[in-house]
Design a protein around this nucleic acid. Structure first.
Length: 316
DNA sequence: CTTATTTGACCTTA
DNA sequence: TAAGGTCAAATAAG
């Protein structure tokens, strides 16, 4: 009831740009596919990866649009399952509707127990995670560059965990996008040093960045990006020996894409909703949005020709 | 102060 | 159940 007009205008704009983005990505994908069909080209792997990225772009854009449409377009056209208890964060009353989760009690030493809300959040998250694309890069670093983690992207990561892996000499570090809470960017990555070759790091990425941090290169597919950059000066590894190691600055880069097991399941990204300026968005609360999108998918008929060539590109 | 890392407990999955 | 993955309090760094 406040500045609805402004909001509508804003939404319209965003919708437009999103659709344009999706269209653009679709076109690119189309072009790539046509190229790939030529037998003369020797491009095999990178093509597929790029395709996946484009697909993500497309889906992401459409998801955004759908979500926004759902928001501004009043009642959901589709029947709402009874399970639906949550509403999109679109509320703008200044009153934080406590989503019944969030600041749960600390896990360590407390007489209480784990609450269900926590579990639900986790379930949501893991569900999402399952649908996120995943790829692995093996990067061999040179000692001169420093033994620091071979961060190869311009994105900023925040370490959130480290685990000793069975059978591995070095622990595995877990990173997530710094803007996860502010921009709902669910990209994560894990760094594992090869036990046989200390110079080799295995970077496993999951999900693409939906955030807009700093300089998001227009066509910057996460896989097949051989640059290396350090954002972290420190290595937490205990077994660190900045001596010996080879002198060859060979940077073998192996990219392997997997995931997208279910081509049927259109995964959806949370993305930053139009309301990032407001503090309404709180990280994990985006789950409702997901649900909305989830219902939308089966119901909405916006499945033009995409799935068709999507599959093709996936199977290539 | 704010922001990032460390680290052990908790949760999910195979 | 164990291994892997994540959370969040405590702590460190800027």
């Amino acid at each position: 009831m406040e500045g609805q007009k402004a909001m509508l205008a804003w939404e319209q704009k965003t919708l437009q740009s999103e659709v344009s983005l999706g269209l653009e990505a679709a076109k690119k994908l189309q072009a790539r596919l046509s190229e790939a069909s030529s037998p003369s080209s020797l491009s095999s792997y990178p093509a597929a990866e790029t395709n996946e990225i484009l697909i993500e772009q497309i889906l992401s854009s459409y998801d955004k649009v759908l979500v926004m449409l759902n928001w501004s377009s009043s009642p959901p056209v589709q029947l709402t399952p009874a399970t639906v208890a949550v509403v999109p964060v679109v509320n703008s009353g200044g009153i934080p509707e406590s989503p019944a989760s969030i600041n749960g009690s600390p896990r360590s030493e407390d007489g209480g127990g784990s609450s269900e809300s926590h579990r639900q959040d986790h379930m949501f998250n893991s569900r999402k995670r399952k649908m996120l694309p995943k790829w692995t890069e093996k990067v061999r670093i040179s000692p001169e560059r420093g033994l620091e983690g071979p961060q190869d992207d311009v994105y900023s990561w925040r370490k959130y965990g480290q685990k000793d892996i069975l059978g591995a000499k070095f622990p595995r570090s877990y990173y997530r996008c710094t803007h996860r809470s502010t921009q709902n960017c669910w990209a994560t990555k894990q760094v594992q040093r090869s036990d046989s070759d200390p110079t080799v790091f295995e970077l496993t990425y999951r999900g693409t960045h939906t955030c807009q941090q700093g300089t998001p290169p227009p066509s910057h597919p996460p896989p097949a990006s051989p640059e290396k950059r350090n954002t972290r000066p420190k290595l937490t590894t205990t077994a660190q020996k900045p001596n010996d190691i080879l002198e060859s600055l060979k940077t073998s880069l192996t990219v392997r894409t997997e995931g997208l097991d279910d081509a049927d399941n259109v995964f959806s990204f949370p993305n930053t909703p139009p309301f990032c300026d407001f503090r309404t968005i709180n990280d994990e609360f985006s789950s409702p949005i997901f649900d909305v999108v989830d219902w939308l998918n089966p119901t909405v008929e916006i499945d033009p020709a995409f799935p068709t060539f999507l599959q093709e590109s996936i199977y290539y």
